[in-house]
């Protein structure tokens, strides 16, 4: 297991380094410059560019960037979005909001999705299964922003049960309360996906030979299902649920806009629009870091659940 983990860590570091490089290059290769402003005198622009090492060749800029990131945790300073504020500080302030609705929506989606999927699998081709199937189709096909707008209109505006947009000023309790609707909006598609996959996996496991063996051992259907099927069905589910985190994060960019949440999503868009190099790279790296971390976690969790992965056995 130790060897397996070390291997995964190295792989994650390599991936992260590559992403760092690509993100830097891609942002720098965008047309225009952060200081493209007709109101600034050319001398001023030249001076500003010199300060930010923008007059040097790309590789030298890259070296400065790497040095700052690795040795000083210096991700550069925002030039346009919040001039003069270090990119790291901006993200540090915004990440909690984004993470709250993302983690919250998954925490909501997991139990509901698992229950729905299990009900559907155990009542295969009966009423319960059909109800879940219809909800799954709706959940997958309705985009989260449409669902979010509906929630906003009916639940928040018409019924007045929730604040319409994020309330930053009235204390933590109010903040969390106002983040509930966006959380629900984001959890719709994960619920549907989890339910759909779990149903399929459980049905397959329930029909497998070792379930029959478990019953011929003298276990009741219920004992056999609990002891033998959930762990096996959860194996492919891990592959779905953990990357969902990165997926939901991407979806939350739009949701954050709809509910005026000061999260990372808005910053990414505005920093790219304004050619705010440092902030754009830092935000991209944040998203990349989440993705790399999730796939790292998948590998570890799969290793924990499946001895064949952990011990490096053959397929069967």
């Amino acid at each position: 297991m130790k060897k397996y983990m070390i291997g995964r860590v190295i792989a994650a570091c390599v991936a992260l380094f590559l992403i760092l490089t690509i993100a830097f290059m891609v942002v720098r290769l965008m047309p225009g410059s952060v200081y493209d402003d007709p109101n600034l005198a050319p001398e001023v622009v030249a001076m500003l560019e010199q300060q930010a090492h923008l007059d040097e060749p790309l590789l030298v800029q890259y070296a400065y960037f790497l040095k700052g990131v690795i040795f000083e945790n210096d991700w550069g300073v925002s030039a346009k979005v919040e001039p003069g504020v270090p990119a790291f500080d901006i993200l540090k302030r915004q990440i909690p909001y984004s993470l709250t609705i993302n983690v919250g929506s998954l925490a909501l989606a997991l139990p509901i999705g698992i229950v729905a999927g299990t009900v559907a699998a155990l009542h295969k081709n009966k009423a319960g299964d059909h109800v879940v199937s219809i909800l799954v189709v709706l959940g997958i096909s309705i985009p989260s922003f449409v669902f979010a707008s509906c929630l906003q209109y009916f639940i928040a505006y018409k019924m007045g049960w929730f604040p319409i947009i994020f309330e930053p000023s009235k204390g933590t309790g109010m903040q969390i309360y106002s983040l509930m609707l966006p959380t629900i909006a984001l959890s719709l598609s994960p619920i549907a996906t989890i339910a759909r996959y779990l149903r399929g996996e459980l049905i397959e496991v329930l029909g497998s030979e070792f379930m029959v063996l478990a019953r011929t051992k003298g276990l009741t259907q219920r004992q056999a299902t609990i002891r033998h099927s959930f762990r096996n069905a959860s194996l492919p589910l891990v592959n779905i649920v953990i990357p969902m985190f990165a997926h939901v994060l991407a979806g939350s960019m739009v949701i954050e806009r709809i509910f005026s949440i000061p999260g990372v999503g808005g910053t990414l868009i505005s920093s790219i629009n304004t050619n705010d190099y440092s902030l754009a790279v830092a935000t991209l790296i944040f998203y990349a870091l989440i993705s790399v971390l999730t796939s790292f976690v998948i590998d570890i969790v799969l290793g924990l659940i499946d001895p064949r992965v952990r011990l490096g056995g053959s397929s069967k």
């Binding site: 070792f210 063996l213 011929t216 096996n232 194996l235």
Partner: peptide, 15 residues
């Protein structure tokens, strides 16, 4: 008691 045809698939791979 019952003994199955295929011992490859009749044991739970994760237990």
């Amino acid at each position: 008691g019952l003994i199955f045809q295929d011992p490859l698939s009749s044991l739970n791979p994760l237990m």
